[in-house]
Design a protein around this nucleic acid. Sequence first.
DNA 1: CGGTATCCCATTTGATACTG
DNA 2: CAGTATCAAATGGGATACCG
Lengths: 169, 169
Amino acid sequence: MPGEQDLEDSVGAAAELLGDRWTFLILREAFFGTRRFNEFAQNLGLSRNILSNRLKMLVSQGIFEQHPYGPSKARNEYRLAQAGRDIFPIVVALLQWGDKYLAGSRGPSIVLKHTRCGNDTDPLLICRACHEPIELDEILPTPGPGASEWARQRLSQLTDSAFVEPAER
Amino acid sequence: MPGEQDLEDSVGAAAELLGDRWTFLILREAFFGTRRFNEFAQNLGLSRNILSNRLKMLVSQGIFEQHPYGPSKARNEYRLAQAGRDIFPIVVALLQWGDKYLAGSRGPSIVLKHTRCGNDTDPLLICRACHEPIELDEILPTPGPGASEWARQRLSQLTDSAFVEPAER
DNA sequence: CGGTATCCCATTTGATACTG
DNA sequence: CAGTATCAAATGGGATACCG
């Protein structure tokens, strides 16, 4: 069991839930159109008991929805529900980072094509308010309504751009 | 040992590297300005041997840089290197998803303030080419230069918006 | 085909103790 | 403070066998 004050924020909770050796891969498969149990198992090469666990978890979290199909509806397809579709930005962010730092000399294995405009695209994060690109040193985390007292304390001590190289202390 | 064809893409590689129970939390701490061994240990409540392992891994991956400090430079600070700063979009994406689906009734624990424009912000993903927001059903993954033969095969079979609800098969 | 149950092994975890 | 070493316990993994 971890310390008492972790998981207070959504990063922790989301990482705890999704940050699993297989979960992201299952999700990636889903974004590639995979829907059936055996397709997941074969494409990823994971054993079926684990797949069963993960799928069950993901359904219980509202990330996948089961859709019976086939003769007498005896079988299930796993389709992304809204909570699952909303994971796409996370997958994109992982893809971009991996391409930049892990892809090796051959270059990225996957390129995202934006069918709306026809270009290969490299998604960019902007501020929804002012439409400028998000720069790390222009973002300050502040306590929100759900912040614990501990988190509130910590966050309110942050000065602007806390991560910027500090003077030697 | 997983199947033969997994980890072919950057999502898999990045998830394998970062998708760990503690790694994301350590990174989040770093984005909050934490730099010292004991600060990490205390704020996260993880045991020091594990922290030691993770930090070593993150340094070896170029995510953190060690900066000696203190009397006789005997101690190390862990600062985000460029590869580490570039993880910020992933953390933001996790935060947004977590806030939306896991935060509960109290609301998000962390709000990102864009100091440049002064607003609390909810970062948005847009296409770098046409500047329109990224919609899941307008993105098609295509094989890139580093794609394996297997990945190339699979991706080239994807039709437009593969994840969209299909007709019953 | 679409799972579930069982079993065994490798790894990881966290407590604790120790060192410079 | 900043780690490393050790170790028992829990966990997670895959193989296999089994069921509707």
